[in-house]
């Protein structure tokens, strides 16, 4: 399981990498909840680290305009991003599929992975159900999927989709030969559940920000290192998440 930390600039990216992040996900919190950052910022972050540090680019919830999105995806490829995430909220399935297929074409010749993203709480916004992401990803030949949340009011991914369902979606993505990523206000106390689901990537921001605040806080290396260490305890078996689940069930 790789640790992905959302960052807004180079300073935060350096903190994330110093703390042990495997992926820095460049986004722009000032543009809606999950907006894109500016090309110079992405370029600066990409150039600051060796290739084994993945730099992903978030396009956020994209408009229903395949050409516009494809050009943005092309931009991510041209900037050398490891991956680009294309998210859907108020989009019907066929439109989302067309956008992803055009995005796939836009990445031809680049070593940039295409990630299809939906939101676990999209029903609150009248949006595309999150579970469609696996079919969308597979049908568009995306490299991976992401399930995130839009709501940033204290609730998180597990408030909207139960562990069993998330486990099924992650397994389905893997069996369709894609990577599977989960994020959405995830916290330290969610690590046992996350480890049992075992997505390929777990994405965080607030959990590794000063004061635990994703907006007014800044990514702090110490917080990233603490989360990474706890993740590794579960991956190594030092903390047996399966035994913990059985114990809880037996109580």
């Amino acid at each position: 399981m790789m640790l992905m930390v959302s960052v807004q600039d180079l300073r935060e990216a350096e903190q994330a990498v110093r703390g042990g992040a495997d992926i820095v996900d460049v986004k722009n919190l000032k543009e809606t909840i999950v907006g894109s950052n500016f090309p110079p910022v992405i370029k600066e972050v990409r150039n600051a680290f060796p290739r084994n540090i993945h730099v992903s680019v978030t396009l956020g919830a994209v408009p229903n305009q395949a050409g516009t999105v494809a050009l943005a995806v092309y931009g991510a490829g041209a900037l050398g991003a490891t991956s680009v995430k294309v998210g859907f909220v108020n989009t019907d399935y066929d439109t989302a599929l067309r956008i992803l297929k055009e995005s796939r074409k836009a990445l031809e010749g680049f070593d940039t992975k295409l990630i299809a993203a939906t939101f676990a709480d999209s029903h609150l916004y009248g949006g595309l159900p999150a579970e469609h992401v696996v079919a969308l990803g597979a049908e568009s030949k995306s490299d991976g999927i992401l399930i995130d949340t839009l709501t940033k009011d204290g609730r998180n991914l597990f408030d909207f989709v139960p562990e069993k369902k998330l486990g099924e979606l992650v397994s389905a993505a893997k069996e369709n030969r894609m990577s599977a990523a989960l994020s959405g206000s995830l916290r330290l106390e969610n690590l046992n559940t996350l480890a049992r689901i075992n997505p390929d990537i777990v994405g965080v921001r607030g959990a590794v920000c000063t004061n635990g605040d994703r907006e007014s806080g800044h990514v702090a290396a110490e917080a990233v290192a603490r989360l990474k260490s706890e993740l590794q305890k579960r991956m190594s078996g030092e903390i047996d998440v399966y035994a913990l689940a059985k114990g809880a069930a037996a109580v």
């Binding site: 790789m2 495997d22 992926i23 084994n52 993945h54 991956s83 992975k113 490299d143 991976g144 397994s171 893997k174 069996e175 369709n176 030969r177 894609m178 990577s179 599977a180 990523a181 075992n198 390929d200 990537i201």
Partner: peptide
């Protein structure tokens, strides 16, 4: 290795 796609995606590609 340091790869986003995990072991199941790889096994599916080999054995699917």
């Amino acid at each position: 290795s340091h790869n986003c796609k995990g072991v199941i995606a790889g096994l599916e590609a080999l054995l699917g």
